[in-house]
Nucleic acid binder design. Structure first.
Lengths: 254, 254
DNA sequence: CCTTGTGAAATCTTTCACAGCT
DNA sequence: AGCTGTGAAAGATTTCACAAGG
């Protein structure tokens, strides 16, 4: 969520559905794995299984990007990797700042998934003077006072907020004022931003609550037939065509 | 995503839409905040603003739960907190295990949002023998060898996977075999699970890629009118009725 | 003969707008 | 008079199923 493409019609935009955009990274990851194994081509069926979606959905998704497949054969892995990367804007370098270097912020800084996809941790920022200068993941932490200068010097347009909930809106305001237009929020708060700024949230607590909801359902159904919990499950099944997938966001609870 | 309610008709289920379930935690958080400020009642308009959705959507969502409001007045905060908690299954205790106590696992273990919502970290599990016995967030880490026993002794049905991608499926299989039926996956992999097991994923890299997509669009549009990046934005706006929100999942990239 | 690309149908979600209750 | 609850309309997403291309 958190996208609100309400503004400007976006001229040359081919209008890729949001649900499709959300799945492109999934396809890209599956394709990258195939690429590393030097697999030259892949069918919609195979790729869909690897990405955990069904093949009709995948083909429809790709149809929004163009006709990149060959009938009777499938898709060229390398070519598709390139096309999707380009579509997602990953062929360029995206400097990112992480604000709030607590447990989570440090985990994010150490997280290897950044570099691999065009994202570069340009700076780590924290409000605690004690932290200033200390290196985390090899990058020295800088103080919040310099936030605006850091954003500006590094041409940052994407910010990650990993502060406590109470500080998030304030940090967000400063990031936005300094020129950041995309924010990934890990704090358990609803952020208010001006039009034209995108916010996405990741919230562990919300995800757990959604799981609890379904878990409760299962327990209820089950009670009607067996004793209670614990039901050793049978054969594995690839999630390829389970339910609606790519959606529901999340936020870190208070 | 990751829900696949394909199986059994689920007898007494009133069939709450998945999109609604995904927003209930959001409402709950806003309501809890109101409750702490001792606000007795709230209108759909006010609550919607606090939760970052529009009021028609909120009323429709609540209508799936029942008629808990009073026309002309609004909703009783305490009552609604209780009803939503019950619906989400948060009135009971959910023991949770976290597998993979690296940076991220430790951050999750330290995360306060658990306890507040009926979730209890029952155990921390890691494959590294060096970690065994060391306390993280006050809880001693246990070795993977004992995974099955831990799950069983604690009656765990929800597991959190924070291992590297390579270990995730294996851990998942063991969790499922031991009786876990809901999994929150932070590893950047598609997990295969049997029917009846729910998986939700949280992936930082995917979220960033989605932001990059939109960021790229903005840069393109903007180029047509000004110089390049950096556009100090104007008045703030509450995201209440921006775009489609609660959806797109995420996964930790490799 | 195999697999893509895609109209059309089915399903799910959001939004509108107003009748109905307090 | 105000605000909820909800049919019905509008929009988005998914799935079907098959024509078309290699």
């Amino acid at each position: 969520m958190a996208t609100g493409r309400t503004h400007r019609p976006a001229t040359r935009s081919r209008g890729i559905p949001e649900a499709t955009v959300a799945r492109l990274p999934l396809y890209l990851r599956a394709l990258t794995a195939l690429s590393e194994r030097s697999v030259p081509t892949v069918s919609s069926e195979e790729l869909a299984a690897a990405a955990g979606v069904n093949s009709a959905k995948l083909r429809k998704d790709f149809s929004y990007l163009g006709s990149y497949g060959t009938r009777g054969v499938g898709y060229d892995v390398e070519y598709l990797v390139y096309q999707i990367s380009r579509e997602l804007g990953l062929t360029q370098d995206w400097p990112v700042v992480i604000v709030g270097i607590g447990n989570l912020g440090a985990a994010l800084a150490n997280y290897g998934g950044f570099a691999s996809r065009g994202f570069r941790v340009a700076a780590l920022i924290d409000a605690d003077p004690e932290m200033a200068g200390k290196p985390v993941a090899g990058i020295p932490v800088q103080h919040t006072d310099d936030l605006e200068k850091i954003i500006d010097d590094n041409g940052v347009s994407i910010g990650v907020i990993a502060t406590p909930a109470g500080a998030a809106q304030q940090v967000c305001d400063r990031l936005v004022a300094a020129g950041v237009t995309s924010i990934l929020n890990f704090a358990p708060t609803v952020l208010s931003v001006p039009d034209g700024v995108d916010v996405r949230k990741v919230d562990l607590s919300i995800e757990l609550q959604i799981l609890a909801f379904h878990e409760q359902r299962k327990a209820g159904e089950e009670a009607a037939e067996t004793d209670g919990r614990r039901r050793p499950v049978a054969a594995r099944k690839t999630p390829a065509d389970k339910g609606p997938d790519g959606d529901v966001p999340a936020v870190m609870p208070a």
